[in-house]
Design a protein around this nucleic acid. Structure first.
Length: 258
DNA sequence: ATGTCTCGATCCTCGAGA
């Protein structure tokens, strides 16, 4: 089973790119972030014609997450994270597909830091970690896939010194990510590419793509049951070079016998 | 290189967010 995550940066503005990528790579499951569409503006018909069933959680202008699956509609197991009744952002959706648990997340950016947005990010990470702790010991494979807005380590950013004050790379952010992994999660892309620079995001500005000034911020975390089945992980880097493309590239894992 | 992109409100341009 191939499971992908892709921050599309507006599902409607990016629809041609999304459909082209789905047709080309045929993931079994695709987690999408930054739909930037209200619930009723999700392109249900086009997704269906592309061969995918979907659940999604939209929001006006910002955020929004979806889980697409070829085999059938994901059985939803969660929408939003508990722990903050004032949090109305559409950033977390969870379901099962063919016996595999899939969490799709769009973790808050957190800039500018320090400040209320950074505080929200760290609180959100705590709430997410609480849910992850419930999932990690599942006997079934679980994959937590999404735009984490976390640069895990220096290797994952083209200019570590230039990013040290950024919410994506501040010590509190990196420590929260390490605590999450310490529950027993495997960062699939890093696990299969130790010591290598692998980027998933290149800013639109300053010729970042041309200069390969990238970040690795899109992650797929695997619980032990999933990690035992991991056979491949990669980034569909070429998609970042397409016309009218997202600033993120699709990132994926392949699990054996699922 | 205050650089690019999207959405939404208001108006046909700008601010917010990323």
């Amino acid at each position: 089973m191939k499971i992908a995550t892709y921050n599309v940066n507006s599902v409607n503005a990016r629809l041609p790119v999304l459909l082209r990528w789905l047709a080309e790579t045929r993931p079994d499951v695709a987690c999408l972030q930054e739909l930037k569409a209200v619930q009723e503006k999700f392109p249900t018909e086009a997704i269906r014609e592309a061969g995918y069933h979907a659940i999604w959680h939209g929001q006006k202008a910002w955020n929004g997450v979806a889980i697409l699956a070829r085999a059938g509609e994901p059985a939803e197991t969660g929408r939003g994270l508990p722990g903050d009744p004032d949090d109305f952002h559409s950033r977390y959706l969870e379901g099962t597909v063919g016996g595999v648990g899939v969490g799709c997340l769009y973790l808050p950016n957190g800039n500018p830091a320090p400040g209320p947005k950074f505080d929200y990010k760290l609180r959100w990470m705590d709430r997410f970690a609480a849910r992850a702790a419930e999932l990690v010991a599942s006997p079934d494979p679980v994959v937590l896939a999404g735009d984490y807005n976390v640069i895990p380590e220096e290797l994952d950013v083209y200019d570590p010194a230039g990013w040290e004050a950024d919410a994506l790379f501040r010590p509190e952010t990196c420590e929260a990510y390490r605590r999450l992994l310490a529950q027993g999660w495997t960062d699939a892309l890093r696990h299969l590419n130790p010591g290598e620079r692998v980027f998933t995001f290149w800013d639109y500005t300053a010729g970042a793509w041309r200069r390969n000034a990238g970040l690795r911020i899109d992650h797929l975390l695997l619980n032990p049951a999933a990690a035992g089945r991991l056979v491949a992980a990669g980034v569909d880097r070429h998609v970042r070079g397409w016309e009218k493309t997202s600033d993120h590239a699709p990132t994926w894992v392949e699990l054996r016998d699922v």
